[in-house]
Amino acid sequence: MLELHLNFCNLVEIPDAIGNLHFLEILNLMGNNFSTLPSLKELSKLQLLNLKDCRQLKYLPNLPSRTDLSSKRSLPESFSSKKDPWAFERFYDYMEAGLNTFGCPELIELERCTSTALSWTLQILLQVHYQYILPSLWNIPFPSIISSIIGGSEIPSWFNNHREGMGSIITIDESPLMHKGNNCIALACCVVFGPPASRRKAPPIIHSLNHVSVPFLCAEDRITEDHLWWFYVTSGSHIWSTKYENLKLQFHIIRESDIESWSFHGKKYGYRWVYEKDLEESNLTMICSR
């Protein structure tokens, strides 16, 4: 079994046997009522864990220390949303790696949860750095989207450049061209976002900017608490070829129902240029133990 989707099944307990599904790559438990999960440490191929709207969840499970990205899933020929309204979501499931705990208000020990999730996604980034390429003509790293969403309002200190206030646009003070090479493999960004001041659609897209969409959050009226969202832009991304002195990114929330963009209130952000040495096993262990 490569994928398991048990979203909105009113589950109050997940059996320990789920930790024995060693080929599982995607685990979607969105919208259930359990408070804990068994250890997932042995799921070495797990790359996407969706716990969104598990409103009774109190603790994150143990996650794999190393992820094998040699996927056996095939890339569907078409993700046309006109033919299939859920095609867009499955496309992101295929392309995405990370953890989503949006809408889990009972999570405790948020600092520990954040450190665990950060360490897990960083080691996935390390595997992507080893150039797992999609089995298609696209010739892009797999997965191409690595991100996590978790409750909280404090940016981890690992992101060593912190800025206050951003709206929907953040500015990276240095051009990626300055870091290309020198064993720099990604730009890591972390945004604190909360309820918008008013209900409104996203501002017009500024085509001269680069754009990133927060994955699979519903309309803005669902955002009632602060959350952290971090993501990695790998060195293979087109933004690394920007010639501007600094880099600007514009953000949107995407509605599941109609792929419509909505604005959100970004309170602050942090970023870090990620080098190979940051992904050494000892450094990942230090992050997880904080």
Rank of each mutant, 00 (worst) to 15 (best):
L2T: 12
L2P: 05
L4Y: 10
L6S: 00
N7K: 12
C9G: 01
L11A: 01
V12L: 15
A17T: 09
N20I: 10
H22I: 14
I26T: 09
L27P: 04
K52T: 12
L57A: 02
K58V: 14
Y59E: 14
L63I: 02
P64T: 00
P64F: 03
T67E: 07
D68Q: 03
S70C: 11
S71N: 04
K72D: 15
R73G: 07
S74Q: 11
D84R: 04
P85F: 00
R90V: 07
E96Q: 15
G98R: 05
T101E: 08
E111I: 03
C113R: 02
T114V: 06
A117V: 12
A117H: 08
L118N: 07
T121K: 04
Q123V: 05
I124N: 01
L125D: 09
Q131N: 15
Y132I: 08
L134Q: 12
P135I: 06
I140L: 10
I146H: 01
S147C: 13
S147V: 00
S153A: 07
T171V: 11
I172W: 03
S175F: 02
M178S: 12
G181C: 07
C184E: 08
A197T: 13
R200Q: 14
K201N: 13
K201P: 15
K201Y: 15
S208Y: 01
H211W: 02
V212R: 14
D221F: 14
E225L: 04
F231E: 03
G236F: 11
I239P: 03
T242M: 11
E245C: 09
F251A: 07
I254E: 15
R255T: 13
E256Y: 04
S257T: 09
I259V: 13
I259S: 14
W262P: 14
S263H: 14
G266Y: 07
R272D: 09
Y275L: 10
D278S: 08
D278I: 03
E280N: 06
E280T: 07
L284D: 00
R290V: 11
